[in-house]
Structure formats: structure tokens, C-alpha cells
Design a protein around this nucleic acid. Sequence first.
DNA 1: TTAGGGTTAG
Length: 590
Amino acid sequence: MRNLPICIPSLWNSAVRLSLDSGPWPDFVGLYSGMLRDSVLPSKVTLSSIVRSCAAHGAAQLGESFHCQIFKMGFRLDVILQTGLLDFYGKVGDLRCARKMFAEMLQRDVVADNAMVSVLSKHGCVEEARDLFDNMPQRNSASWNSMITCYCKLGDIGSAHSMFDANPVKDVVSWNAMIDGNSVTWNTMISGYVQCKEFGKAIATFQEMRLENVKPTEVTMISLLSACAHLGALDMGEWIHDYIRRKRLKIDAVLGNALIDMYSKCGSIEAACDVFNRLPVKNIFCWNSIIAGLGTNGYGEKAIDLFALMLEEGLKPDGVTFVGLLSGCSHSGLVSAGRRYFSEMHDIYGVTPAIEHYGCMIDLLGRAGLLKEAVELVKTMPMKPNAQVWGSLLRACQIHKDTELSKHVVQNLLDLDPRDGGNYVYLSNFYASLSRWDEVNVCRKVMIDRGVHKEPGCSSIELDGIVHEFVAGHSRHLQIMQINLFLDEIAKKLKEHGHESNRALVLHDIEDEEKETAVSYHSERIAVAFGLMSTPPGKTIRVVKNLRTCSDCHSALKIISNVYKREIIVRDRKRFHHFKDGCCSCRDYW
DNA sequence: TTAGGGTTAG
């Protein structure tokens, strides 16, 4: 480009604007300096595009230098440039400068007001945003959407929904609405529900959107797929994939990534690979999702193959890639490969290991029984170990029965944030594994005294598009009587096949139930029982659990898969377990 | 002395 004989200012301006949209970011910088060499000054339109691009790339210093340029060229009071700069400062995190831009505006229009509302929402200044919104002389759809987003980000879904209901733009069911119209408002609300983990409401809002004849878009599908991924709702996810095909929506890298993530998190790794292979354009997110998906589904070697392929295609791995790769190595027991990638990530790929990468390595070494090496890494890591790191080490101590080391780890966990419920769970499980019930009780009492709550065990299973949730010990499910009878029958069969309850892990989930009964009532077991009794023979059962599966349920589920001739797929907090013919894909290594 | 350039959902 540099040698092109361009000297007509408008051509330079167009070339710069084109490169901002299509070319990689450095291309623009080269082109821009070429323009200055030709003594051509950017037009205000070019400057506006540049500012927008700086905002999108988070290029704070470059953007500021263009602010000076705008000032020098006398465009200081151009309302569009001012709005662009206000948005830029908001997006690079400089709220003070954003406020200053807004204050300096002599005339404001609805777009400028919206930009300020959006900046204030992103910086958590809700009341200020709302005040500005209430006093705006004009509002458009974007104004309402910015406020809805603001409340969703705060987790105030009630206020978000009130805004959604009050939004007059949404209620207009017109020809326009049938074509594309107000889908952004609906998408905002759906994604808000997903962010606030109200997945059922997200799906219900989608149904309502269809009834109102507002056309769902690719963005709608991305939010819904994210909901399915969280819930492990494969049937719903497959329905959405089918809907995307029927409506001929465009599967680009972003929607493709949402599909890969949904299939991976629903345990259907073959379908995830299929979507991945068919994608014409893949970005780093797609590669990261498939590598992580293969890893959590127990295909560590395949994750490594994909990583090699990613490099061959000329992509640069980032921190997320290595989390997927290292945890994949950990789940498949690939110690030497994990060690190699950990040392190469900085030296060869220029990615500095963060705490989550150290966490993966400590997990990998600890599970493999290399406790000394794991401890050494904890000591030498450049940051303060967090509860996840100590938790991994404690889990390794449990597996390899190293009580001495456990004491040290427990002390460190205690010294960490005393308000973090997760630390108490680690401790309680640790004492329970040693049958030291007095300490378990002390631990529980301290939790109650300090008002710390442990997340209760909860498992879900999707049947005919409905997600059924089960909480250990106190389910409100309509068919709980029948389920309990069936659980008793399962318990009998387990006994016949030599399964003995491991009382040590009872307290993993609940505290009040009588211990023997309690284990067989762990939430994943209730969900599996419900799945067995409600689906035809041979149908695969898929369960999602919010915590890790305990070893007692793990061995019980292996037997159940054999006795009832069913494939059972359980997604726990860490990984997938594919139970089939009495075995689990994790090879009892998790 | 054209128009174009700015805000909201993933």
C-alpha cells in the first residue's frame, strides 16, 4: 500500500477507513503514517472511524493522540466526534475523561445521551445513569436497552424487566417488527436473564418473542445456546441448532463457538467436533472451546492434536488456550505433556502463566502422585496461592493419603479468606474423608456462626425440553415419592453387586440426613433415578451437577450403568464422566 | 463546497 501513488486526500481517507474495518490493526497504523508522509490530514469522518476503532481495540494512548489531533484541527465541538470520544474514554476505562467530554458538549442529541448512559452503566453508576435517562428529552430503543443492560449487569433482573415492559418501542408490533424491528431489545433481555443465570426465563422470553412476531436473530441463538450449555440441556440445544438451520441463520465464528460450547458442555463432543470441522471461519474462541471441550470430556490426546493443528494454521494461542490444554492433560494423566506445555507457554508462545495455569499444573502433578513437585511449585509460584490451588493440593493429599502434608494445606486454607464458603467445603470434606466427625462438626458450626453458606448440591436432567432440578435431601419434585421408591430398588441392586456406601463422603453434600440414606440421596443419584424411570430402555441419561461427584456416587453410577444397560453422562463442576458397561471414561481419575 | 462519521444485544 505504501508505494501506491495516492495523493488525493479523500482516497487516503477511504483507504484508512477501509483498513479499519477489514485489515488487521497494524495495517491501519502503517497506512496512517503513509498518509501523513504525503502531508494529507485525516478528515473528520476518518477521525471518527479511527476513534471508534481505538475504542474497539482498547488502544488508549493512540486514541488520546487522535483526541489532540481532533482538537488541533478545530473539530472540537463536532457532536459526532465528541460522542465518539466519550464512548472511547468510557471503553478504555477513563470515566473522568468521558464525563469531561459529555460536560463540554454544547449541544446534545439522543445518541450522545445514550452513549453517556451506556458509559455510566458500564462503570456501575446506576443512579446517575437512571437520572440522565429520566431527564432525556428524547429516548430511542438504544436508550431503553442501555438501561436494561445496566440493571442486568447489577443482577437487578426485576428492574431490568420493568424497563423491558415499559419500553414503548418493544410493544410496537408492526410490519417492521415482523421483519427485524425490535429484536435488539428482546435479545438484551434474553442475554440479561442468561447473565443472571435465570435460564428458564431466558427460554420463556424467547417463546414470547416468537409469539410477538419479532424475528429472532443470530444473537438470540447465541444467548439461548449459552443457557443450554449452563443447563446441560442437550435436547433444547439440538432444537436450537435445527432452528438455526431451518431459518438459514448464518453460522459465523461467534455462533459456531456458541454451538461448540453447548455441545461440549452437554457431553456431546462428537457433535461439537462436527460443528468445529464444518466452520468455514474459525477464531481463537472456537479453537479454545474445542480444546477445552475435548479435555473436559476426557480426550486429552485429541486436545493436544487440535492444539498442534491450531499452530499449523498460524493462530497464536492465548491464556485461555493453555487453561484448556493443561486441564486436558490433567484429566487424562498426561504428565510429561503438561509439563512441556507449561514450560513452553511463556518461552515459546509468549503467554505468561497466570494463577489458573499454576492451578492446572498443581492439579496435574498432585493427581499423578508427584506431591513433592506440586508443593515445590506452590512455594515457587510468583503469586499468592488461592483456595483453588490449595484445594487441588488437598484433593491430591486425599487421593494419595498424605496426612502430614494435608495439615499444612488445611492451615493455609484456614488462613485464606474466612468468608469464602469454598474453603470450608474443602476442609469439611477433608475431615470427613478421615472420619474425623468432630472436626467436621466444628467446621460446620464455624460456618453457621460466621454466616457462611455452602452451595447445596444440585443436579439437573432435561426431559422433553423441561429441565428437572434435584437438590440433595429435600426435593420438591412432584414425583418424589415414586423416585424415592425407585432409589430404594437401586440401593438393593447396588448391594447385590457388592457396592458398599462410603460414609466418609456423606458430608460432601448434606449434613442433616442419616448418613447411609444420605449418600444414596445425593442429587446426581436422584436425577439419574428419575432419568431411568422416565425414559425408554437404552436411552442415554445426561445429568449436570453443580459440585464435584463424590467417589461413592461415582462407583455406584458405574454399577448402575451396567445393571440397567444405560449410558449415563454426568457433567460435574470439573469434567465429564461417561459411564458405560460398568466403566467410566475418566478411568477413575478425577 | 455532497455525504459519510457517533449510542444499545453476543
